[in-house]
Amino acid sequence: MSYFFQIVVSGVVVGSIYALAALGLVLIYKSSRVANFAHGQIIAAGAFITYFLTITIGIPIFFSFLASMIITFFLAMSVERIFLRRLIGEPIISVIMVTIGLGSIIDGLIYLTPFGTENYSFPAFLPTTPLTLGGVSISWTQLVGVIITFILIGGFSWFFKKSTVGISMRAVSDDQFGAMSVGISVPKVFGLAWATAGLSAAAAGCIIGNITGLNFDTLHAFGIVVFPVLILGGLDSILGAVVAGIIMGLIQQLASGYLDGNWGLSGTGEVMPYIILLIILLFKPHGLFGIHEIERV
């Protein structure tokens, strides 16, 4: 039984990371209806900036964490300003391909640095002995990661519910013309959505980097893996992203915990989210909390 609880705990940890990674995509999709395929690269960039500031320049890790969030904030904002602003109103394939192309450019830039190929890990700043409770153990980095994730997600939900900027972002996602007519600058909101997404990506990158170590391939793979989470959650709901993230994390860990090794299967954890995704798309394409805007063809 403790095996089961151990899997549940690690599923919740993985799931909350997924939720944080999916959060950035939800923010962008919510306001500008753009699916960002370069999110994984921004996550990786955020993690590497933190590492660079901590190790090479020598800033305490907490401050470099904040600094990298600010840097990716402006990085993502300028990406939106330079590339995506011109594509407003273009067909969806153009927008998707531009984000894929941007991801490829960032790939190239990261491969230029040593971060592209080698493995690094953040200096340990938390106790290394895992916390054990009734046979179930959780490491401090995981625990702190989950706590920070939930604080961030709570902050973002508050931001959307209560703050003026957040409300104007919701207004734009609801009805662009209506938002314009009450004096909201739609391009500014798009820029801000990308910027906050960049910020959350940097946070996600640091937390993932702390838990799994800094490896470019695993970090940017998160940009693809979050899509099942996104669809299950319903694309434009923060609550959906959280619930779907945790469900996906649990499914993934349960699959690799119980299916791998039986019937000659292996690596089911990697593929399970996509199988679930196909099933969701066939039967409930608007996800758990999404708005019902799917057209029947």
Partner: peptide
């Protein structure tokens, strides 16, 4: 077949998941 019901982004992600499932089947 999902194209019977889905459009745009949803369809793109459906084909993406087929790609990932294919890779897994070949690899394992």
């Amino acid at each position: 077949l999902p194209a019977l019901r889905l459009k745009h982004l949803y369809l793109a992600i459906a084909t993406l998941s087929f790609q990932m499932i294919f890779q897994w089947v070949i690899n394992f």
